[in-house]
Amino acid sequence: MKVPTLENERVKLSLLDLSNYEHILNIAQEKNLIYYSPSNISTPKALKAYVQVAVDGYYHKTTIPFIIYDKQKQVYAGSTRFGLINWKNKVAHIGWTWIGHAFQGSGLNKHMKFLMLQYAFETLKFDKVEFRIDERNQKSRKAVEKLNATLEGILRKDTLMNDGFKRSTCCYGILKEEWSNIKATVFNGY
């Protein structure tokens, strides 16, 4: 599977792997960066294992992991990926997204999501993109709601967190027939 670099004037998303993950090592260690995630990236060893899982998924065609480069600030900002890719049903999840605190609220995430949604619907010809978010994570929920994603339901106590808490997960979705309107209204034709 050959993955192109996804890029616009603000952000560049290129394949994340074991040859480039060290660019985001410092960001991964920021306090509470992925508080609402069951993943662990808090140490160099944990980040490498996290990236290895993403790379393994890439080789099994179930994930496409990206390293995020902020072209405006000219620095690496974090990571995101397509995951749980179902090629038969043409459905993928966008998630595992984390950017350093300095990039949050800067518009970077919206540019990333545009590129990923455009790639999913226009290049891969997927029928649906899903987002799964911890019910308590209001910041991420609002960001996805601003994309006009529909809350489809809440999976109650479905994910065990690192601290032993069993979270509930909000499931949002965007359908391919909704994409052209979202592209024109939310992204104003980027």
Rank of each mutant, 00 (worst) to 15 (best):
M1W: 11
M1H: 15
T5V: 15
T5K: 13
T5A: 09
L6K: 00
R10P: 09
V11Y: 08
V11N: 10
V11E: 04
V11C: 00
K12G: 09
K12S: 03
S14A: 14
L15R: 03
L16W: 14
L16R: 13
D17Q: 12
E22N: 03
L25V: 02
N26C: 14
I27Y: 15
A28T: 11
A28W: 11
L33E: 02
I34G: 14
S37I: 13
N40F: 01
I41R: 11
I41Q: 10
T43M: 03
K48H: 13
Q52F: 04
Q52Y: 00
A54P: 01
V55K: 03
G57A: 01
G57I: 02
Y58K: 14
Y59P: 02
Y59E: 02
H60F: 00
T62Y: 03
I64F: 06
P65W: 07
F66G: 07
F66C: 12
I68E: 00
Q72L: 10
Q72S: 11
G78Q: 02
F82R: 02
F82P: 11
F82C: 06
G83T: 03
I85A: 02
W87E: 05
W87Y: 13
V91I: 13
I94R: 05
W96M: 09
I99D: 08
A102D: 15
F103M: 07
Q104T: 11
Q104F: 04
G105I: 08
G105P: 10
G107T: 03
L108W: 15
H111Q: 05
F114P: 06
L117C: 07
F121S: 10
E122D: 10
T123P: 03
L124G: 10
K125S: 08
D127H: 05
D127L: 01
D127Y: 00
I133K: 06
I133D: 04
E135W: 02
S140W: 04
R141T: 09
A143K: 08
V144W: 12
V144K: 14
K146E: 04
N148R: 07
E152D: 15
I154A: 01
T159I: 09
F165C: 06
R167I: 08
T169Q: 02
T169E: 08
C170A: 15
C171N: 14
G173L: 00
L175F: 01
L175M: 15
E177N: 14
W179H: 10
S180D: 14
N181L: 07
N181G: 09
I182C: 04
I182S: 07
K183A: 03
T185A: 04
F187E: 15
G189L: 05
G189D: 07
Y190M: 14
